[in-house]
C-alpha cells in the first residue's frame, strides 16, 4: 500500500486528486478515466471499502484518510486499473446481448412501434455504464467466477422487455436459469445500493427470477442431438 498526502480544496474530486498525485508525486500511478463525468464507467474503484466512481466522488464527502483499492473480481492491470472490458464482453456474449429475431431487416420499412412505457423502461435499464461496481460489491460474484452479476441479469431483463426480441422463457432459461444466473444471486442487494447510476437492480433481478421460476415449470422443449 502506497501513501500520498494532498491538500484538499473545495470541489476537489477523487479523479482530480489522483491526477494531481500522478503529475506531482508519482508518475507511475495507474488508474483509468475517460469522461470525467460519470458516463464512461472507467474510473470505478473501491473507495474506503465501497465500489464507486472516482470522478463522481467529492473528497469533501470522505474522511481525512482515504483508502483506494482496485475493484475485485476483475483482472488487475496495475494499481487501481482493472480490466472490466473483457468481463463485460464475455457477459454480453453469454447474455446474447442483441435482438434475436428471424425477421429480415428491411432498411426501407418503417420502424416497428413499441409502447412508450416499454421504450422508457428499456431506456432506464440501458443507462448501465458497465462500470462494474455492482459486480465488485456482490458477494456471489466475489465467490463464484461464472456468476453473471447484477449487470448481466439487468441486461437480460432489458431484452425480456423488448417486444422485438423473439426469445421466450425457455431461451432465457438456457442463459440465466442456473446458479450462474438468476439462482446464484442471494439477494444481498449490495448491487442495488451501490450502483452509481441508481439502476433499479432489485426489481430487475426479481423480474428475471420470476420469469426463470416460471420457465422451470413450463413443459420441456424437446431437444434432439
Amino acid at each position: 500500500m502506497q501513501e500520498y498526502q494532498l491538500e484538499e480544496y473545495p470541489g476537489l474530486n477523487l479523479y482530480i486528486a489522483l491526477n494531481k498525485i500522478r503529475e506531482e508525486q508519482d508518475s507511475s500511478l495507474q488508474f483509468d478515466f475517460v469522461c470525467r463525468a460519470g458516463i464512461c464507467g472507467s474510473c470505478a474503484m473501491v473507495i474506503n471499502g465501497r465500489p464507486g466512481l472516482a470522478c463522481k466522488t467529492l473528497v469533501s464527502t470522505l474522511p481525512k484518510t482515504i483508502t483506494l483499492n482496485p475493484l475485485p473480481v476483475f483482472k488487475l492491470v496495475g494499481d487501481l486499473s482493472v480490466d472490466t472490458g473483457t468481463w463485460f464482453r464475455e457477459m454480453a456474449q453469454r447474455a446474447g446481448s442483441w435482438i434475436h429475431t428471424d425477421k429480415e431487416f428491411d432498411p426501407e420499412a418503417v420502424e416497428e412501434r413499441m409502447s412508450n412505457e416499454q421504450a422508457l423502461e428499456i431506456y432506464e435499464l440501458e443507462r448501465c455504464i458497465e462500470c462494474g461496481c455492482c459486480v465488485a460489491s456482490c458477494g456471489t460474484a466475489n465467490m463464484r467466477e461464472d456468476f453473471m452479476g447484477a449487470a448481466g441479469l439487468n441486461r437480460i431483463a432489458r431484452f425480456m422487455i423488448d417486444p422485438r426480441d423473439q426469445r421466450d422463457g425457455s431461451d432465457y432459461f438456457e442463459v440465466v436459469g442456473s446458479d450462474d444466473g438468476a439462482f446464484g444471486c442471494m439477494g444481498l442487494m449490495a448491487c442495488d445500493d451501490i450502483c452509481p447510476k441508481d439502476l433499479p437492480l432489485q426489481s430487475q433481478l426479481a423480474r428475471v427470477r420470476r420469469a426463470m421460476a416460471k420457465a422451470a415449470f413450463a413443459p420441456k422443449k424437446k431437444v434432439a442431438f
Binding site: 460489491s137 458477494g139 444481498l188 449490495a190
Partner: peptide, 27 residues
C-alpha cells in the same frame, strides 16, 4: 449457497468487512 471453500470464505469475509453494507452483513 454457503461458501464452502476456504478461498470463497476469505473472499466473502474480506468483502463484507470492507463494504459496510448492512444487508451483506445480515447474510
Amino acid at each position: 449457497k454457503l461458501p464452502l471453500r476456504v478461498n470463497e470464505q476469505k473472499m466473502i469475509w474480506r468483502l463484507t468487512r470492507r463494504l459496510s453494507h448492512l444487508d451483506t452483513w445480515l447474510w
